[in-house]
Simulated assay, not measured.
Amino acid sequence: MRLSAPVHLLKRQARLLSRRENVPLHQALDRVAAKEGFGSWSLLAAKAAEAAPAGRLLARLMPGDMVLMAARPGQGKTLMSLELAVAAMTQGNRAVFFSLEYMHADILDRFRDIGSNPADFDQLFDFDNSDAISAGYIIETLRSAPRGTLAVIDYLQLLDQKRENPELMVQIRALRSFARERGLVLVFISQVDRSYDSARKPFPDIGDIRLPNPLDLSLFDKACFLNRGEIQFQAT
């Protein structure tokens, strides 16, 4: 699928059209989509999401999956996780972003970086940066979440940083059981060990996941590794 401009620029064109001609934004979006050969903006957005790397990854995921999103710092794992959340919301699913690092303003900046806005998704997106985030907290928060909800946890290695939290292995096993029981997709942003050398191999792999505490990585179903703007999908 080839568009005349990236989706976020097409959306900006629609906003300008809406202001210039004093028409509702949804009408302006549909008019822009029509020029691109689509019957509506929702169809254009859905096709664009499917064609993007996040859309391709989402197509590989099933309800109940546990996913690693891993890279060294600065390689885009947070942005890819948000793009995955946007792809899920484009399909009408709910998305939740749990972060032990970001503030609300930070996550809005990251949305802008990918040319999106959580306000566009009719309250499908939730951001939670409670200091209490752990497996138990996530389970309680998502207990009534509908099947197909995608939750991002930022990040794996911080879940047991507080001494009062259970060991990481215990938490991941609990989240795995919960994800399967409720039909949720849980995406864990993960650090890659400093020993990984991109000059020796183009992508990190499951053996490069940083594990300050013991964890059986077979508890995860799939993994996505990023390096230098490229992405590699792997089964665990």
Results as ranks from 00 to 15, higher is better:
residue 83 E to Q: 09
residue 83 E to C: 05
residue 84 L to D: 15
residue 84 L to T: 14
residue 84 L to S: 08
residue 84 L to A: 08
residue 90 T to I: 15
residue 90 T to K: 13
residue 90 T to M: 04
residue 93 N to L: 15
residue 94 R to Y: 07
residue 94 R to G: 02
residue 95 A to V: 05
residue 95 A to N: 06
residue 98 F to M: 01
residue 100 L to T: 10
residue 100 L to C: 11
residue 101 E to V: 06
residue 101 E to P: 14
residue 103 M to F: 14
residue 103 M to I: 02
residue 106 D to L: 08
residue 107 I to D: 10
residue 109 D to R: 14
residue 110 R to A: 02
residue 112 R to W: 00
residue 116 S to K: 03
residue 118 P to V: 11
residue 121 F to K: 11
residue 121 F to V: 04
residue 122 D to H: 15
residue 122 D to N: 15
residue 123 Q to A: 12
residue 123 Q to S: 12
residue 124 L to G: 05
residue 125 F to L: 08
residue 126 D to M: 11
residue 126 D to N: 05
residue 127 F to C: 08
residue 128 D to I: 06
residue 130 S to Y: 00
residue 131 D to L: 09
residue 131 D to I: 02
residue 136 G to Q: 09
residue 136 G to A: 05
residue 137 Y to I: 03
residue 138 I to A: 12
residue 140 E to C: 02
residue 141 T to A: 15
residue 141 T to Q: 12
residue 146 P to E: 11
residue 147 R to A: 11
residue 149 T to S: 06
residue 149 T to I: 07
residue 151 A to H: 07
residue 151 A to P: 08
residue 152 V to S: 10
residue 152 V to G: 10
residue 153 I to R: 01
residue 153 I to A: 00
residue 154 D to I: 03
residue 157 Q to G: 07
residue 158 L to V: 03
residue 162 K to Q: 14
residue 162 K to E: 06
residue 162 K to T: 02
residue 163 R to I: 06
residue 164 E to K: 11
residue 165 N to W: 02
residue 165 N to D: 03
residue 166 P to L: 00
residue 166 P to D: 00
residue 167 E to W: 03
residue 170 V to A: 11
residue 170 V to G: 01
residue 172 I to N: 13
residue 174 A to Q: 11
residue 175 L to W: 07
residue 176 R to Q: 13
residue 178 F to W: 02
residue 178 F to P: 00
residue 178 F to K: 01
residue 179 A to Q: 05
residue 179 A to T: 03
residue 179 A to F: 00
residue 180 R to H: 11
residue 181 E to A: 08
residue 183 G to D: 14
residue 183 G to T: 10
residue 187 V to T: 06
residue 188 F to I: 06
residue 189 I to T: 06
residue 190 S to Y: 09
residue 191 Q to E: 13
residue 192 V to A: 02
residue 192 V to R: 01
residue 194 R to I: 01
residue 195 S to N: 09
residue 197 D to A: 13
residue 198 S to I: 08
residue 200 R to M: 15
residue 201 K to I: 13
residue 201 K to Y: 07
residue 202 P to T: 04
residue 204 P to D: 12
residue 204 P to E: 11
residue 210 R to Y: 15
residue 210 R to L: 15
residue 213 N to Q: 14
residue 214 P to T: 09
residue 214 P to D: 08
residue 215 L to G: 04
residue 215 L to N: 04
residue 216 D to S: 05
residue 219 L to P: 04
residue 221 D to K: 12
residue 222 K to F: 01
